[in-house]
Design a protein around this nucleic acid. Structure first.
Length: 637
RNA sequence: GCUGCCGUAGCUCAGUCGGUAGAGCAUACCCUUGGUAAGGGUAAGGUCGGUGGUUCGAUUCCACUCGGCAGCACCA
């Protein structure tokens, strides 16, 4: 007897082994039709998998959260089948489901072309129409290796060889296509439906290692119905419209050019935005008892040797040989310089915690392929700070930092923040005992700060573990910005010390921390998050005063002068153009407020307020309008 | 850095199967003073990313190079 417990608690008894498919059919014909796979004691299996002992069973349908993975994994297989039919000389490697879609990596001497993609996609639709049954077979590993070697599939044979001996080798067959796969899969190719699309071609290294050969990767997206596919494609279009590189140009915030690869040319409007954010951050730092410093750009290479950066980071550093034959490096980080300031004079335990902040301008030689607009550049400014403290102070400093960070993010319109805990990496400085201590300290500090963290194994800095703060933007994308890193190594290497209460010399702990990360990147994120429609306090131009007739010009100038005197960023538009034209232009420029003045307003000393996006206008007295706009444009308290 | 694609006016793009290029928007000037998302006219604007080669002749073909885009790798 096999007892199968369903999610609603009901138990079905079967005289012997039974497949999920049969159970689904027994429950009801509707479910049988909708069934895609089963979940046995929490593990996803094929619908046709045999249940030979008592278990909890759930029938997986399209409504199931994990069903999309299944569908996308199938899409990858169908794509591989299509490729093998069209280009038999191509070798298949791996093809998993990923967020929003799937990919498959192929090995072949010549890359695919966009035309190939169209052919492959068309063939995929044919395979779906053929409705091939997808069946699972368990193979002997040597047989499987021989099979794939004979078939000229060297990569598959290599994968099988690397599967641990105690795991069974399963192959999935659909039509004439057979692939090594852990499964599970949908029952037949027809279940893939029509809501898929091949998206792009790219190179990808075999096994993700840059030393290996490059394969041809095809990316696709797949959904249960056309509506979801269309929604996804629309979201991509929306992301493209928000692209900070495009908005940066359209709104004249900044530009990039070949003569300064990886460095930003900030235009007046972009620089206003930048300075507004900097002023805001400075205010927050002062309120939280940080001291601000500024340290040199060019520093003798010997300091980087002492700090350990020379070992691990030279590849990414800009270095210079000077005319008088000195070896300097443009600083890629601020920490060693901050330690130099710390080391001036003798520090007492009474000086700790010492929170040393710098809007530190750094240069790093990033690989050319990594550069991306202003989000990934070679010259950038961090909202950096190092907190020199005792081990006992780590917890309270972590709590205080997390509060500051949450406030800052909320003020910029980000409320969904996740936290990752990155522990020791393979290549690291310091002893295991050091790491045990600093990891434990950071972990308990994080929980004391009320953070829920997910583990990011092996991703810590070489000198210590870190917390990484990830924020989610308006269209659901995640960005890692803030960080808090515990460092016991640098104070040792650069000989930072303090005199403890008992008169002994001790090493401070350094907490490396940033909230925005880099101004350049954070501005890019802000632009995309707000789609260029900044809240009033951030908008580069907060108000445009536009005239209807030239007779109102003197009054418009007066209005603008009052606004400017009240601290607002204001422009006038006195051009010989129709008001509709001006409204359109400043709306497209995303100016939050337009004040329209014509003959009537000039006579009555009023303004017509038009808010961005709103169709209606409000006529108010000039004084009142100034007061309203000042209030609306104030930065967060 | 690797693979692929791309580089024509300020922007978006067309075009030349080798005979030095065109549109819309933007810009300047003129007309128009118009009440909430594009009023009309005229003009100006390009060593077709750079260097070299093939050719009578290269923006077009070839090589190299710089830059951009996508993905991979990288992000201490």
């Amino acid at each position: 007897m096999v007892a199968i417990t369903l999610p609603d608690g009901k138990v079905r008894q079967y005289p012997g082994p039974v497949t999920g498919e049969v159970v689904a059919r027994d429950i009801g014909p509707g479910l049988a039709k909708a069934a895609l796979a089963i979940r046995v004691d929490g593990v996803m299996r094929d619908l046709k998998a045999t249940l030979d002992r008592d278990c909890h069973l759930a029938i997986v349908t399209a409504k199931d959260a994990d069903a999309l993975d299944l569908l996308r994994h199938d899409a990858a297989h169908v794509m591989a089948e299509a490729v093998k039919e069209l280009y038999p000389e191509t070798q298949v490697t791996i093809g998993p489901s990923i967020e929003n879609g799937f990919y498959y990596d192929f090995a072949r001497p010549t890359p695919f072309t966009p035309e190939d993609l169209e052919r492959i996609e068309a063939r995929m639709h044919e395979i779906v129409a053929r409705d091939e049954a997808i069946t699972c077979e368990v193979w002997d590993r040597d047989d499987a290796i021989h099979f794939f070697e004979a078939a000229g599939e060297a990569y598959k044979a290599e994968i099988i060889s690397s599967i641990p001996g105690d795991q069974s080798i399963t192959l999935y067959r659909q039509g004439d296509f057979i692939d090594l796969c852990r499964g599970p899969h949908l029952p037949s190719t027809a279940r893939l439906g029509k809501a898929f699309k091949l998206m792009k071609l790219a190179g990808a290294y075999w096994r993700g290692d840059a030393r290996n050969e490059m394969l041809q990767r095809i990316y696709g997206t797949a959904w249960f119905d056309k509506k979801d596919l269309d929604a996804y494609l629309t979201m991509l279009e929306e992301a493209e419209k928000r692209d900070h590189r495009r908005l940066g140009r359209e709104m004249s915030l900044f530009h990039l050019q070949e003569e300064a690869v990886g460095s930003v040319f900030w235009h007046p409007k972009g620089w206003v935005l930048y300075r507004t954010i900097e002023a805001y951050m400075r205010r927050r730092l002062e309120a939280n008892n940080y001291v601000e410093v500024k340290t040199p750009q060019l520093v003798d290479f010997s300091l980087w040797e002492a700090s350990g950066h020379a070992d691990k980071f030279v590849e990414n550093m800009f270095t210079v040989k000077t005319q008088d034959d000195r070896h300097l490096a443009v600083k890629p980080m601020n920490c060693p310089c901050h330690v130099q300031i710390y080391r001036q004079g003798i520090k007492s335990y009474r000086d700790l915690p010492l929170r040393m902040a710098e809007f530190g301008s750094c240069h790093r030689y990033e690989p050319s392929g990594a550069l991306h607009g202003i989000m990934r550049v070679r010259a950038f400014t961090q909202d950096d700070a190092h907190i020199f403290c005792t081990e006992e102070q780590i917890t309270s400093e972590t709590i205080a930092f997390c509060e500051l960070l949450k406030q800052v993010y909320a003020d910029f319109g980000f409320t969904d923040v996740r936290v990752k805990f990155s522990d020791r990496p393979a290549k690291r400085a310091g002893t295991d005992a050091d790491w045990d201590r600093s990891e434990a300290a950071l972990k308990s500090a994080a929980s004391a700060a009320g953070l829920e963290t997910t583990l990011n194994p092996g991703e810590g800095a070489f000198y210590g573990p870190k917390l990484e703060f990830v924020l989610r933007d308006a269209i659901g994308r995640d960005w890692q910005c803030g960080t808090l890193q515990v460092d016991t190594v640098l104070p040792q290497r650069l000989d930072a010390a303090y005199v403890a209460e008992d008169g002994s010399k001790k090493r401070p702990v350094m907490l490396h921390r940033a909230i925005l990360g880099s101004f350049e990147r954070f501005l890019g994120i802000l632009i995309e998050h707000h789609a260029g429609r900044f809240p009033d306090w951030l908008a580069p131009v907060q108000v445009v005063v536009a005239t209807i007739v030239s007779e109102a010009d003197p009054y418009a100038r007066e209005v603008a002068a009052s606004l400017k005197a009240a601290g607002l960023r204001v422009e006038t538009d006195l051009r010989n153009e129709k008001i509709t034209y001006k409204v359109r232009e400043h709306s497209l420029a995303k100016v939050p407020t337009m004040l329209v003045v014509g003959r009537r307003e000039a006579e009555q000393r009023t303004v017509a307020i038009r808010r961005l996006g709103g169709a209606e206008q409000e006529i108010v007295a000039l004084d009142k309008a100034v007061a309203t706009l000042v209030a609306a444009s104030a930065p967060p308290a």
